[in-house]
Design a protein around this nucleic acid. Structure first.
Ligand code: SF4
Ligand code: SF4
Lengths: 133, 133
DNA sequence: ATTAAATACTACTTTAATGTAGAATTAAAA
DNA sequence: TTTTAATTCTACATTAAAGTAGTATTTAAT
């Protein structure tokens, strides 16, 4: 019952970039050090966040990353979808794939309570709300 | 954001045994067929549930499994702990291991809301409450 | 121009979960 | 007593996530 390492990394990365307020760009090495994310693994996640239009990358010396949009416009679910190919979001915990009301598993009714809470949190929590500005 | 296959299997297995009311014991083959759990994989999970004292196994011809205690006395969290070595239960979603109030991750406060809901559900939901009697 | 410091790309390796196979054990039925 | 149908044990194979390595590309500083 946990997020994948990649998802955890992605959230931390986005928080780091959102909180970075110096003139120098924040680079991969710094993020890697701050959160103990394997550098080489991190540099494979970064292009996905660039591709998702959350951050802008500047290549070459003095390069690094900066936010591409308002922190308030990026929610946790957006970040998870960007690195997960949005597949886990739709999958439920007990059966693979979607289940309809006629074919639900034993835990369905019980699960819908925390499930709703999780969805609300992932959808309503933005990068702005979890950063220290 | 999902339970492991093994955890899902274990819950379904326990439900099947709890709901089984015939005189003949429920055997591994039947459970495997009902839930599409790979037979050989299932037969490695079963001894763990026996070990946890949730079910009693009867070996040999006409053998199978039956509940070892009241369905109302087995909660979901008990089942998860039995197959997970109780490790995932204590791990949180963003950082490995426990975190204290002084060293919490960005999502901590947001996560505590659904987290509480999940814990309550896993703790309070018993086998009895999710079986059709 | 050259160098240095950064991101991006591609391929490979490792690890843990999941799945598979076969043989041993048990006990009722034939 | 033999056969059959069940659980249990141990070892191996597959898969997907995670991690590692090397090289190419880019661009500012020197
Ligand atoms: S039946 Fe409901 S709880 Fe169970 S897997 Fe499907 S959607 Fe999830
Ligand atoms: S700080 Fe809180 S939310 Fe984050 S990993 Fe630790 S316990 Fe979980």
């Amino acid at each position: 019952m946990r997020l994948s390492n990649t998802s955890q990394y992605a959230i931390n990365i986005m928080v780091a970039i959102a909180e970075h307020k110096e003139t120098k760009l924040l680079n991969a090495k710094s993020i890697s050090d701050t959160f103990d994310i394997p550098y080489k693994y991190l540099t494979r996640i970064m292009p996905q966040l660039v591709e998702a239009k959350f951050i802008i990358s500047t290549r070459g010396r003095e390069g690094g990353y900066s936010l591409a949009k308002e922190a308030s416009s990026i929610s946790i679910i957006n970040i998870l979808n960007a690195v997960n190919d949005s597949l886990h979001a739709s999958k439920c915990i007990l059966k693979p794939g979607m289940c309809d009301a006629n074919n639900k598993c034993a835990l369905h009714d019980s699960w819908m309570v925390p499930n709703k809470s999780i969805k609300i949190m992932f959808n309503q929590t933005t990068l702005e709300s979890i950063t220290n500005l």
